[in-house]
């Protein structure tokens, strides 16, 4: 069971394909930050549930929460023997990933008293390769800092000898970024650990470059753009049952 506890519905960039960016009020109410007591009580409420995968995000950017590191450390410190959650996943745009935060995430990933694959994955939503394209797609000129942050995360994970969390670098294929899919793949593939290239939800036991379908009003056209981009890098562009294709 996935449990999304949304630390915030604020975001620091404005991806043009994201519903959060299209509305002033993502949930029909002003953007907010979760308070620590709500987080603590929500975590306590997970006790006794089976096979929970905890995700501290939904529509917003979780690392924008001013106490993101504290919240994450608290969750792991109270999860001895995985009594609260079996797995943990983070989706982030990686704009706010300073060295201290990298260490926090890698510390909890390697914490004792938990099953070794508790911290499953970090999903980095990147969606572009060139700076101009990043600015166009993400609505912010943050390409350089994002690439630096993700590369630093990968380096530190390797230096610490950790296999977890696996890293997925995601790319929503859409108008304006189709021309640099190959460059994106070529950039990230050698930096990841035994990565797969996938057009479907990435496996949770491997790093992955994930070419994601764009959800939009003209879905047939979006699918065609996605298919063409996937084929260009030798990737079958469809969802399929496990084991097929």
């Amino acid at each position: 069971m996935n449990v999304n506890l949304e630390l915030t519905d604020h975001c620091n960039i404005a991806c043009r394909m994201c519903s959060q960016s299209l509305r002033d009020e993502a949930h029909g109410a002003p953007h907010r930050f979760m308070d620590f007591d709500t987080w603590r009580r929500a975590l306590d409420g997970l006790r006794g549930l089976r096979d929970v995968t905890l995700c501290p995000h939904w529509l917003g950017e979780p690392t924008l929460h001013p106490e993101f590191d504290r919240f994450v450390r608290h969750a792991f410190e109270h999860n001895a023997n995985n009594v609260l959650f079996r797995h943990f996943k983070v989706h982030t745009n990686a704009v706010l990933l300073p060295p201290e935060r990298v260490e926090t995430l890698l510390d909890v990933a390697s914490a004792g008293g938990l099953l070794p694959d508790t911290f499953l994955a970090v999903h980095f939503s990147i969606d572009a390769f060139a700076r101009d394209t990043y600015t166009l797609v993400k609505g912010a000129d943050r390409r350089e800092v994002v690439f630096r942050n993700v590369e630093r995360f990968l380096s530190r994970r390797a230096e610490r000898g950790l296999r977890r969390p696996v890293v997925h670098v995601a790319y929503v294929v859409q108008d304006g970024n189709t021309g640099e899919v190959a460059a994106f793949v070529e950039h990230w593939r050698p930096r990841l650990a035994r990565p797969v290239l996938t057009a479907d939800w990435p496996p949770m036991d491997r790093d992955a470059v994930y070419l994601r379908r764009w959800n939009t009003g003209d879905q047939a056209r979006a699918d065609a753009i996605h298919a063409e981009a996937c084929r260009a890098v030798g990737l079958v562009p469809v969802s399929r049952p496990e084991g097929a294709f």
Binding site: C230, R231, G234
Partner: peptide, 9 residues
């Protein structure tokens, strides 16, 4: 399969 995809693209 990879080569087939690339050929079509």
């Amino acid at each position: 399969v990879s080569h087939a995809c690339r050929l079509r693209a």
